[in-house]
Computed example of a mutant assay.
Amino acid sequence: MLSLNFPKEVTIIEVGPRDGLQNEKQFVETEIKKAYIQKLAAAGIKEMELTSFVSPKWVPQMKDAGEIVRSAPEGVRGMVLAPNRKGIERVLETSCKSIAVFVGVSNTFNQKNINKSPRESLEELKPAIAELKAQNYFVRACISTAFYCPYEGKVQEEDTLALCREFVEAGVDELSVADTIGMAAPHESYSLFSRLKDELPDVLLAAHFHDTRKMALANIYAALEAGVDRFDSSAGGLGGCPFAPGATGNVATEDVVYMLDRMGIETSINLDRLVDAIDTIAPAVSREISTGYYSLSKQG
């Protein structure tokens, strides 16, 4: 019997087109990205990270961001990551109305990622968030290294909570709280997300797990118990942060959807069509896709 704490429905935020591809050394052709995104939408994905407006010098995979945004599918909340004021200004020049910003809880990670301390990043973003909300933009704050940092080790729960509170006070619509290097254990997932749900009830809350140590599904289960009903995932388990050593792929969308389906939790995502989307991107990426559900689907 399901726990009374489990939600009846869950929203999957697909991060494959952005977080899944950003670390690919070989450039994935723009037309392949477009086809991948369209097929993800056809599978029932309603919210998606499309791309990011970052320096192509540092993340060359995202150099076609403008074209990707222009071809975004209808009926999908397509979000664009913008790490700083310059990136936000580029988004404002497009038709996209949903922006994701990010700050790492860990000072060292944030410095290596965007050459600023978390405090400096936050102070730069606060007025930008206010301006975006005044123009009716949906603003998502991605909280990196919420559990562990590849440089500093364990991140204190209070530090993560404090950063989340400041973003909520700044006016963001959603927090995406990430286990960036996949070190969190289920009891840590439950503890942090329970407190976030209790202390920040008026903001959308998403959990973002990497599967580095094969604990992502267990952590999602624990977050479900804590009342979380929004999860980031990447079709094919693609992904990894170029500034976080050891951060392998995100949890695979198909494995999350399969688990939720078996638990009787509605996602409105068609697994066969999701596999079709993965088939589109698989030949263009550097590693073989071998996630559980996808591999079994190939065996007939």
Score class of each variant (00 low, 15 high):
1 M>A: 12
5 N>K: 08
7 P>R: 02
9 E>P: 03
13 I>A: 11
20 G>V: 02
20 G>C: 02
21 L>W: 11
24 E>W: 09
28 V>G: 06
28 V>I: 14
29 E>S: 05
30 T>F: 10
36 Y>H: 06
39 K>C: 07
41 A>D: 05
46 K>A: 00
48 M>L: 09
49 E>G: 01
49 E>L: 07
53 F>L: 03
55 S>P: 09
57 K>W: 10
58 W>G: 01
59 V>M: 06
62 M>V: 04
69 V>S: 00
69 V>E: 00
70 R>S: 11
70 R>L: 14
76 V>Q: 00
81 L>V: 09
85 R>D: 04
86 K>R: 05
91 V>H: 00
93 E>R: 05
95 S>K: 05
99 I>P: 01
114 I>A: 02
115 N>F: 12
116 K>Q: 14
119 R>C: 08
120 E>A: 13
120 E>W: 12
122 L>Q: 04
124 E>P: 14
127 P>V: 14
127 P>F: 15
128 A>N: 07
131 E>K: 14
137 Y>T: 01
139 V>N: 01
140 R>K: 13
145 T>G: 00
149 C>V: 05
150 P>R: 08
150 P>L: 11
150 P>S: 10
151 Y>P: 08
158 E>A: 08
165 R>A: 10
166 E>V: 15
176 S>W: 06
177 V>T: 05
178 A>M: 13
179 D>F: 03
185 A>W: 13
186 P>E: 07
187 H>I: 15
189 S>W: 06
190 Y>V: 12
191 S>K: 12
191 S>W: 13
192 L>M: 09
193 F>Q: 03
197 K>H: 05
198 D>H: 14
199 E>Q: 11
201 P>Q: 05
203 V>C: 10
203 V>Y: 11
205 L>C: 13
210 H>R: 00
213 R>I: 10
220 I>Y: 12
220 I>V: 15
221 Y>S: 08
221 Y>G: 05
221 Y>Q: 10
224 L>S: 03
224 L>N: 03
227 G>C: 10
229 D>A: 01
230 R>D: 09
230 R>G: 02
231 F>S: 00
233 S>I: 01
233 S>G: 02
234 S>I: 12
239 G>C: 10
241 C>A: 08
247 A>E: 14
247 A>M: 14
248 T>V: 13
259 M>W: 11
259 M>R: 02
261 D>H: 12
261 D>V: 07
267 T>S: 06
273 R>T: 00
276 D>Q: 11
280 T>P: 03
281 I>V: 14
282 A>K: 13
283 P>V: 15
284 A>Y: 09
284 A>D: 12
285 V>L: 15
286 S>E: 15
286 S>M: 15
287 R>W: 15
294 Y>I: 04
296 L>A: 11
296 L>D: 04
296 L>P: 04
299 Q>A: 10
